[in-house]
Amino acid sequence: MHDLDGTDMRILRLLAEDGRRPYSEIGDAVDLTPPAVSDRVSRLREAGVIRGFTIDVDRSQLRSGVPVLVRVEPNPDERAAVNERLRDSEAVEHVFTTAEGDITAYGRLPSESAYEWVEETVGVDRLDGYEVDLVADVDWTPSVRGTEFALDCVQCGNTVTSEGTSARVGGELRHFCCPTCETRFEERYEQLEEGV
C-alpha cells in the first residue's frame, strides 16, 4: 500500500471516533461491504498506519488529583532520564517533547504540592527549570482530519510514493521508495541473517 485514498481516510476517521465501530457500520458509511472494510483495515495495520486499537478513558472518573501541565527544561544530558521518569509516573497521562528537548507532561497529581511532586518524581538537579500550571478543562480529541500519511523507506528514510515498492522481508511487510532501496535492504538483511 503506497497511497491512502479517500475511502481509507474516511475509515481512519470513523475508527478514530470509535475504534469498536462494527465493520458493517463503517461499510455503510463508505459504501463497502464489511469484508472489504476488514481487508482495508488489515492492509492499514500491516502498512503500519494503524498500530493498534485503544480506549479513551476519562481518568478524572477513575482517580482524584489536581489536573496540571508540568513544563520542564531538563539538563541536556538528563533529557532521557527525565522523560522516562515522567512516563513511568502513574500520575502522568501524556508526555510531549519539543524539538528543542523541553518536555510538557499532563497528569493528575496528588493534592499535595505539585512542586514537591516534581522534585520527588523528576529531581530538580536534573532540570534547568520547570513550571506547573493548573488545568481548568481537558478536551482530548484524536483525529486524522487534515493529516496526510506518508510511509518512510526503511532503507534510506525517503517518502514512499506510488512509484515505490513493498516486499515481505523477515516476515514483515517493508516499504521502499524505489527498487534499488528494496534490493539493498534485502541484500543487507541476508548478510545479517548469514552472520557476515
Rank of each mutant, 00 (worst) to 15 (best):
L151F: 03
G170S: 10
D139M: 02
R40N: 05
I50P: 10
R13Y: 04
G157P: 07
I50G: 04
R20P: 00
A167E: 15
M1K: 10
S42H: 15
H175P: 11
E112A: 06
L44G: 07
S24P: 00
E182G: 00
D18C: 05
G27V: 05
E46D: 15
R45N: 02
E46I: 04
T97P: 00
Q61D: 07
E187G: 00
D128M: 02
D102N: 05
A29W: 04
E90M: 08
S111G: 03
I11M: 02
L14G: 01
S60V: 05
T180E: 15
R63P: 02
E163Y: 12
R40K: 11
E84Q: 15
I55N: 11
S111M: 11
H175V: 06
Q191S: 14
G170F: 05
W117I: 03
F96D: 06
P110I: 02
V160Y: 13
G65C: 05
E84Y: 07
T104M: 13
G157D: 07
V135Y: 06
A114V: 08
S89L: 08
W117Y: 13
L62H: 10
E100H: 03
A81L: 11
A150Q: 10
R13F: 07
R20I: 03
E78V: 00
D133I: 06
P110L: 10
L109W: 04
Y115T: 08
C153P: 06
R43C: 00
G27F: 09
E112H: 09
T121A: 08
H94E: 14
I26Q: 02
D18W: 04
L109I: 15
D58Q: 11
V41P: 03
R71I: 06
E119L: 01
P142E: 05
V92T: 11
E100Y: 02
T161G: 14
D152L: 12
L62A: 10
D8Y: 08
R184Q: 13
T165G: 03
C156T: 10
R87G: 01
V196G: 11
R168D: 09
G48Y: 09
A150T: 10
E187R: 13
C156M: 04
G101D: 03
E84S: 10
E172K: 14
E163F: 12
E116N: 08
P35M: 05
